[in-house]
Design a protein around this nucleic acid. Structure first.
Lengths: 301, 301
DNA sequence: TGTGCGCCAAACAAAATTGCATGGATTTTT
DNA sequence: AAAAATCCATGCAATTTTGTTTGGCGCACA
């Protein structure tokens, strides 16, 4: 019995893997790039795309010397192709959630500072409690996309807004300003914000973006004071330690740092939230649930 | 920020065709039924579903003697799978709309010699592969103007320089000198260029233009030896066959000619290139692309 | 209870796909 | 302006996938 309307199979007799090759090619911009992304070879991707063109009776790319250019026909089907891709990603997410084996891989996405200062101890605990779980630590300072299953669990600093994601606030710390001893020896140790406003500052993002973000939290900083910055927070902190400027840092992480001193005693408190986030569908997996619980316990205030 | 999120390919490493097999199995109720619907065989569908189960790490069906029963995990991914299927169907529909029907006219511009000696066989092949395509053969010895859409595809002997045109070199032959048996009986068969320089020659262009062109290619010919000429190459060749003079001709075309003999064994080789040329914009058209591909295959060395 | 029918699983031969190596072409770099 | 780096196409060998055939199992029906 067919509870649903039966599919018209003759309409989709083309090879679905060829669609995947096409999508990868569009996203990567070249056949070679698509091959790298898919873990196959350029001739294979090229032939699959050609076969799709022939199967659909449309030419999708114009071979233009270096690289390919999407034809109008290619652009026309692109939206449906992308939807097919995101449905495939959802299959992966849901299937991962259905997998109730404890043994297997769990991917956790964290910032580099977390990876260096906090995760090692937690990973040891995970190994003790569940040695058959294999952890992939994805280190990125971008928010990684749980919807596409780049990671199973992520630690973010903002509450997730997507309805498919569930987040649990695990800790709220405070960020403060720090500088190296050498820096203080040279510039003095400012106690009040007013004294510090001309000191060079190390940023974690482009100066204007960082100034805007701080302003949103009630701290007026001129973008001009940010001379150096790096999205890699540990690199930014190396700059602070080298005495290149003052830096803003979560309190509990700064404790470990040697040669750093807190400055600005009257600064407004900058709350730093921490959220443990996962996908509603993968959370049902026993293995992921186990890791989730360990993280939640260990990261509790 | 990336508004266009790239796909996470490493996690979507399962075979998309396996998803199709799973969907067909669910909708048809059995592996055999799915095989019938997909136009394949039951073992194939069975193996694809098994491979999907292994790839996702989840069991999708309960093998229950006669027939299969969906497991909870199978039911969980079903929605996303169906969405993938409907996206696939949409691709097919959109592509069909984009598919400018293959029926229609394609104009090919060729020289008269090509039209007579080479095109007939190729036209037969085009008719076999795509009977609904109507071919107009534009016979001209001028470089026909693709930019003005006099023709959709042209065969030229020089590489196109215009950026709007794309050309593909398909063959490089050699031109040699030939004369009719009657001519040789009367004038002898010159073996060296020096012996021939006073023999009457049939031209394909105005004597001085032809002499200049040959000089550019390293062959010194006096314009005065060209007594008769015609831009219509086949007319010029009728003159050669009638014994009015010697003629220069592409080797592969001369082979077919009866009553002609090659002369001048020490002549410098005159390369004759052949380029398939079309306009960038029309190349995306399905039927023109089809004809292009046939021409390219058939004219390959 | 025996028989027929439909379905899934397994073994082996055939076919299709893939990967590798290479060549041609174009853009970027030095 | 030459050289390096990419990128796509193609020929050929190897692997993978598919098709064919056969056998086992459960269910329906006489």
């Amino acid at each position: 019995m067919h509870s649903r309307m039966a599919m018209n199979w003759s309409e989709i007799d083309f090879d679905w893997n060829q669609v995947r090759a096409f999508l990868a090619t569009v996203e990567e911009g070249s056949l070679s790039g698509a091959a790298r992304a898919l873990g196959t070879t350029q001739p294979t991707v090229g032939r699959q795309v050609s076969a799709l063109e022939q199967g659909l009776g449309v030419s999708l790319f114009e071979r233009a010397g270096r690289g390919l250019v999407l034809t109008p026909s290619g652009a026309a089907i692109l939206e449906a192709v992308q939807e097919m891709g995101s449905a495939a990603a959802r299959i992966s997410v849901v299937a991962a959630g259905q997998n109730d084996s404890v043994a297997g891989r769990v991917a956790i996405s964290v910032s580099d500072m977390m990876a260096i200062h906090i995760m090692p101890d937690i990973l040891r605990k995970i190994r003790d409690k569940a040695p058959e779980i294999e952890i992939e630590l994805i280190v990125t300072n971008d928010i990684s996309d749980l919807l596409r299953r780049e990671a199973d669990i992520a630690i973010r600093h903002v509450e997730p807004t997507e309805p498919e994601l569930i987040g649990r606030q695990i800790r709220s710390g405070v960020a403060r300003f720090y500088a190296s001893d050498a820096f203080i020896a040279k510039h003095g140790c400012p106690r009040r914000l007013a004294e510090a406003k001309d000191l060079p500052m190390i940023g974690f993002a482009a100066p204007q973006a960082m100034a805007d973000e701080l302003a949103r939290r009630g701290l007026q900083i001129s973008a001009g004071t940010i001379q150096f910055y790096s999205g890699a927070i540990c690199a930014a902190w190396a700059m602070v330690e080298a005495g290149l400027g003052v830096g803003l840092m979560s309190e509990d992480m700064a404790e470990d740092r040697r040669g750093l001193r807190r400055i600005l005693e009257d600064e407004p408190t900058l709350p730093v939230d921490m959220w443990l986030v996962t996908h509603r569908d993968v959370r049902t997996s026993r293995r992921i649930r186990l890791v989730w619980d360990i993280l939640r316990t260990e990261l509790a205030p």
